[in-house]
């Protein structure tokens, strides 16, 4: 039986790793839930942002928080441009999968052309820093990531619930034609939301640059688990996405600590199936 320290440490690192799942799931969940667009290029955009953070940090010595000020708005603009294509070709849910997959591949190739397929690592002195609470170690960067993800998820949740735009978006997601007949300009809102989703990818990318070593094919690393997170957290629900991310991260980590680490990938999808079948009210 593993010790309490081991279990606690596994839980901490799992929840914090889940923060990344949640952060990546956020933008995906919004566009899937509220625009009915399944945006596979979300991951590629996050990696583009990560590479840009790396580039600015390594070659121009721009600190990641400053480069984020540049990259996140740029990603917002990319989201708008991407939505222009969705809008122009009247892309539906199924076609969006195909088209955004192609976007992702193109971005992957472009990244590889510029940065090569070789590994890129943005070394910072704080990337592996951690502090001690009792017997447990808490990595600083992951903690900040979780706080940022928490603020974003909470803010987005409030925005969707409390503001006119947020409520109109939810109404339009349920029935776009009826919402339009009540004066909701769904098109304009959809652009806004697509931009936001891409901006969230940009924020996730900043953290990816600091936490991970980059290679173009890594774009697909998080695909499966983040999809599970989006579905468990319910489409279009930002807080759900974050909690589901942490739930999966924690379950994977506990499985790795108690059972064999090889069980970890099974956990997220087993959890997904259980929750789909059980469909609890509170989730």
């Amino acid at each position: 039986m593993p010790s309490a320290t081991l279990l606690g440490q596994a839980l901490i690192s799992g929840v914090l790793a889940g923060g990344m799942y949640g952060l990546l799931a956020l933008g995906l969940s919004l566009s899937w839930g509220l625009l009915r667009l399944v945006n596979l290029s979300h991951f590629a955009l996050a990696f583009l942002a990560a590479y840009l953070t790396y580039e600015l940090g390594t070659n121009y010595h721009v600190a990641p928080w400053w480069s984020a000020m540049l990259i996140v708005p740029a990603m917002f603009a990319m989201g708008l441009a991407q939505h222009w294509i969705f809008d122009k070709f009247k892309v539906n849910e199924l076609a969006s999968l195909l088209i955004t997959f192609s976007f992702a591949i193109i971005l992957e190739v472009a990244i590889q052309l510029y940065w090569t397929a070789d590994y890129r690592r943005y070394e910072t002195h704080y990337s592996t820093m951690s502090f001690k609470v009792g017997p447990f170690y808490i990595p600083v960067l992951e903690l900040i990531l979780c706080l940022v993800a928490g603020v974003l998820a909470w803010g987005t949740w409030l925005w969707l619930r409390k503001t006119y735009v947020g409520k109109a978006l939810r109404a339009a997601a349920e029935d776009a034609d009826i919402a339009a007949a009540y004066g909701v300009d769904h098109k304009k809102l959809a652009y806004l939301l697509s931009g936001m989703g891409a901006a969230y990818a940009g924020i996730a990318g900043t953290f990816i640059a600091l936490i991970a070593t980059l290679a173009p094919a890594q774009i697909w690393t998080w695909l499966g688990v983040v999809f599970a997170v989006v579905i468990i957290g319910r489409l279009g629900n930002p807080l759900g996405a974050l909690f589901a991310g942490m739930l999966i991260g924690a379950s994977e980590s506990i499985a790795m600590a108690v059972l064999s680490p090889a069980w970890a990938p099974v956990v997220s999808f087993s959890l997904l199936i259980v929750i789909l079948l059980w469909d609890p009210e509170w989730l």
Partner: peptide, 15 residues
């Protein structure tokens, strides 16, 4: 055509 996922109040304030 009530927005089923929105609350009563949100149905009104959304539009």
């Amino acid at each position: 055509n009530i927005f089923r996922s929105l609350s009563v109040e949100e149905n009104i304030t959304a539009v």
